[in-house]
Structures are given as structure tokens and as C-alpha cells.
């Protein structure tokens, strides 16, 4: 008997925004520990909503979301940080602090959660090494290329050794070559660190090439859940 414990579970999740727009309808899906998942779909399909529900930027209107044993939808505002410490989040626009160096930007994440000072330096350097930016610790984000800035953001997301890495269109601002580099980096992290990676994208070249687990959303419904390697480019 094989028991598969899913790390993330959506059960009949509906999300209706205050302005009346319904972004997700009765969505149910499971994601296993250590998985690498692409979430694809047309604009307005509910990709970003799904991710926002996961890191509790939004609350589901109906249904339950369980992540690593935490009932995300029921989480109180002041307890959100407990969830966030198990997650690393990467955005399209990097969200770095321009007045801090690369090192300080990554260290900021550890300082914010009250990490002991002695632990900060080795952890930051390890994360920056993982993303290949150890040589740029003293640079400011504005002096880096888009791909490098995104690597800093990934290092910041990883420095706390999260169980899940959530990436919302991380390659949206990057050219194809850089995009591929970033995705390969994420794939490497998934394999070497065992971090579960969820990546929202609309870049079909990447999805086609990587042959990973793909969840396709359409108009707020689950269009298709392709197991690893099943995905072939379809009209979406």
C-alpha cells in the first residue's frame, strides 16, 4: 500500500472577490511534496488567485486549503507569518529593496523573522551561492541585470529553507535566454534541496521543454491536470 501525503490540497475552493468577480470555481487539486508544478492558463484564468490563496494574501470564499497541515483559509491575520515562514515567494517584479545591497536584501528576510545574528551570514552566503551570485554580494539591485535581480529574489525566498517555493511569473520580465536560466535554477533547487516548487507562467516554451507536472486553469476551472511529462502544447 502506498500512502501519498499531499503537501498542498485544495478542496472545492471558490474565490469571489468583493467586486463580484469570481476567479475560481469549486477547484480541487493536490500537490505532492517535492513536486515541481507549472500553473498555466490564459489571463484571468485564476492562476494568480490560486497562488494568492496559497500564501494567504486572499482568503477563499468557500472550500478549504491545507498546506503542510495548516488550514490556510482559517488562518488569522496575526498568525499569517507562521505560514509565510514555510514558504518562499518570488514575484515577477522581484520586490527587492533598492537601498540595500544584495547581501542585505537576503539578510533582511532572516532579520525580519528574528534569526540569531550568528546564523545570518552563513545562511545568506549559502543561499547566494545556490543562485550563483556569491560574487555580487556588495552590489545594489539597480546595478544588476533583470535575471540577476530575480536570482537575488530567489535567494531571499530560499534563505529561510522553505518547504514550498511559490513563483508568480518569475520570468515575466526576462528575455527567453534569461528565463530559461531562471527556470533551470528553480529545477535544480527542486532536485537538490527537495523544495516543492509552484510556478505560474504563460511561457509555453518553458513548459514544453521542462516536461513537469502541469496544472492548466481556464476561466476559474481546472482545465486539466497533466502528470509529469504528459503535457503537450494545447490551445489555451
Amino acid at each position: 500500500m502506498v500512502i501519498i501525503l499531499s503537501l498542498i490540497e485544495f478542496k472545492n475552493v471558490t474565490k469571489q472577490y468583493k467586486n463580484g468577480v469570481t476567479a475560481l470555481y469549486e477547484l480541487s487539486l493536490e500537490i505532492e511534496k517535492g513536486d515541481f508544478v507549472f500553473i498555466i492558463g490564459s489571463s484571468g484564468g485564476g492562476k494568480s488567485t490560486l497562488i494568492k490563496l496559497l500564501y494567504r494574501e486572499e482568503k477563499p470564499t468557500k472550500g478549504t486549503i491545507i498546506m503542510g497541515g495548516i488550514n490556510v483559509g482559517k488562518l488569522r491575520n496575526r498568525s499569517v507569518y507562521k505560514l509565510r515562514r514555510k514558504l518562499g515567494i518570488v514575484f515577477q517584479d522581484y520586490r527587492l529593496l533598492p537601498k540595500l545591497t544584495v547581501y542585505e536584501n537576503v539578510a533582511f528576510a532572516l532579520e525580519a523573522i528574528g534569526e540569531a545574528r550568528g546564523n545570518i551570514r552563513p545562511k545568506v552566503l549559502k543561499a547566494l551561492e545556490l543562485v550563483g551570485l556569491k560574487s555580487k554580494v556588495r552590489e545594489y539591485p539597480d546595478n544588476l541585470s533583470g535575471g540577476e535581480q530575480q536570482r537575488v529574489a530567489i535567494a531571499r525566498a530560499l534563505v529561510n529553507e522553505p518547504k514550498v517555493l511559490i513563483c508568480d511569473e518569475p520570468t515575466g520580465n526576462l528575455d527567453p535566454a534569461m528565463s530559461m536560466e531562471i527556470v533551470e535554477l528553480l529545477s535544480k533547487i527542486n532536485e537538490t534541496e527537495g523544495t516543492t516548487v509552484l510556478m505560474v507562467t504563460h511561457d509555453k516554451t518553458i513548459v514544453n521543454k521542462m516536461k513537469k507536472h502541469v496544472i492548466a486553469l481556464k476561466d476559474g476551472h481546472l482545465f486539466k491536470d497533466y502528470k509529469k511529462g504528459e503535457y503537450v502544447d494545447e490551445i489555451l
Partner: peptide, 17 residues
Amino acid sequence: KREISIMRLVGASNISI
């Protein structure tokens, strides 16, 4: 604002922000 939102994102508790 940005600083605060990042602190929250990386899991800083409200009191420590």
C-alpha cells in the same frame, strides 16, 4: 510600504514589523 510588505511576505510577525 514596500519594506513592510516584504517583511510580511518573508514571515515577519506583525509585532516585529
